[in-house]
Design a protein around this nucleic acid. Sequence first.
DNA 1: TCTTAATATGCAAACGTTTGCATATGAAAC
DNA 2: GTTTCATATGCAAACGTTTGCATATTAAGA
Lengths: 333, 333
Amino acid sequence: MKHSTIIDIAKKLRISPSTVSRALNDHPDIKKETKELVRKVAQELHYTPNPIAISLQSNRTTTIGVIVPEIKHDFFASAISGIEEVAYQSGYTIILCQSNESVDREVVNTNVLMQHRVAGIIASISQNTLKWNHFQDVIKRKIPLVFFDRVIEDAAVSSVVIDDYRSAFDAVSYLIGKGYKKIAHFSGPSKLGICIKRRDGYIDAMKQHHYPIPDNFICYGGLHEQDGYSAMDALIQQKTLPDAIFAINDPVAIGAFQRIREAGYRIPKDIAIMGFSNNKITNLMEPPLTTVDQPSFEMGRSAARILVQTIEEGLTEPCHLVLNTKLIIRGST
Amino acid sequence: MKHSTIIDIAKKLRISPSTVSRALNDHPDIKKETKELVRKVAQELHYTPNPIAISLQSNRTTTIGVIVPEIKHDFFASAISGIEEVAYQSGYTIILCQSNESVDREVVNTNVLMQHRVAGIIASISQNTLKWNHFQDVIKRKIPLVFFDRVIEDAAVSSVVIDDYRSAFDAVSYLIGKGYKKIAHFSGPSKLGICIKRRDGYIDAMKQHHYPIPDNFICYGGLHEQDGYSAMDALIQQKTLPDAIFAINDPVAIGAFQRIREAGYRIPKDIAIMGFSNNKITNLMEPPLTTVDQPSFEMGRSAARILVQTIEEGLTEPCHLVLNTKLIIRGST
DNA sequence: TCTTAATATGCAAACGTTTGCATATGAAAC
DNA sequence: GTTTCATATGCAAACGTTTGCATATTAAGA
């Protein structure tokens, strides 16, 4: 069962491949009857165009490259799902890569995608991405690029993000409004843009109310459960207990949550805790976790939409989209 | 910044493209010095081979197609991650599709993947896949295929699964050993293989102990939280309370869990509950959910390994891999 | 010195499309 | 009966590789 080609159709009809090609593409030069004939035979032979040949000839593909730090992460899984959704509807196909939070791998990924002549790339950078020559190569090659969530600020590239600063500011303000005063912040990698912004939001909210922030109340670390766990552990060791914790994301909040539990403190009575992202899981904890809802699926869809538009209509100006977050108040605060 | 080609190198060195091609592929006919020269210039020009041209010429790609029902689902996200891992290491690229549990979309997906001349396909079927002509097309085309988790039993195709029957049997036996007698089972779609097997494991474990299974103790439904919720709701309405529930998977267990809570029953005292898959979330519930650990990441890796092997070494016999599950006993039972 | 063989390279076709240009056909205009 | 134009089709090159075969060069054998 070989794939049949335009040439097979041509032979069968004793016409030339170019006529077949034009007929299938509904070229005005071709007579109606010929078109119908060609279409009929194409059906009979189960002809489907070979996208590879088309790509070679046209030097473009209908493939979108996607790079995320970690596929398993709830947020990214959901965003990818959104990307796939739009890609599917628009006739694109997605090639998925994960950087595993490694810049080196991210570099390989961008190269692979460029080699594959993807029509565009959607990316969320690794937490270790400080240099970004690899993305500059992408830009130089004029391959449409859209960042989402974790973006490179200095690059003139379309992006889909949330307002990390404001979301954090609002979240912390809510805590303050609830009466908490000694609020600690478990941040992530100190160089990662979203972490910097959320931290600044936290700081400014505290400052606005003239609440002091002791040195050890801002803890930098990773983005996983274990990081929250050990940050909390350190605070407990130091015996400087906050009355609330604002964590960079849900996993970190969950790690802290567990350590708090282990130490026998009550949530939220002794220590309140707040996450970020609204991972599915947070609603099922006991008490359920207060968090900030981040529209992951929608971010994926928007990023894909912007990319497709850039590819097809050649948008020249980068487009920046900021989606709304929503404070989800639950039992943990 | 155009990509440079083999011809650019040829021109620069005033030799023929074929020589360049052979030099880069380390063909024995080519003199050592020539090879070195070619490699040097290739470096200078940042040459990378165009995979599209290679594909067209060789009629094969280094792309693996992946079809899953839902990317967001914890289990699949993790499996995809495993697939990506192996693919990356083996120099393959993955095209990701989701069927959204729709057969029609699954058909489109397989067609798209075949058109793209993928080197092989890894799939987990949708819950509505009863006919499978689309996969037969794949087989006819001699495109290597590996199913994982949700497989088509009758197809002579490699697969990576767990022993659903035994896992369920053991799980229910454990419940029985704990003293539970009126155990209900929340199953999934009644035609889905994994559901049938888990159900049969449940039935046989009950039978072994001569425990009756009232009609309404096996509830068929979907695979999501809401399905568990409504199944539990129905039982509560009927006032025929089981003393334990064995759910087809974690989300269903979680749904039931919530309904139980809402009804004011205590877990596990009034009703015990057990899930399946060991989603990350289950460990954080209160009480944490007893479940069956399913090695999702490893299943992805194994599936990818088998596929790559089939592609590269042309395995002819389908290979069936059954990975071990592990009962994770926690507070909910 | 001439043949033979080994070594290194080039030529050209092939993969499946698209597309600019040439051309064949027929009809309308003069 | 030419010329002119529109219509419909075909030819061939191009996209970037790979590869069978031909060929040029050199070395070895007689």
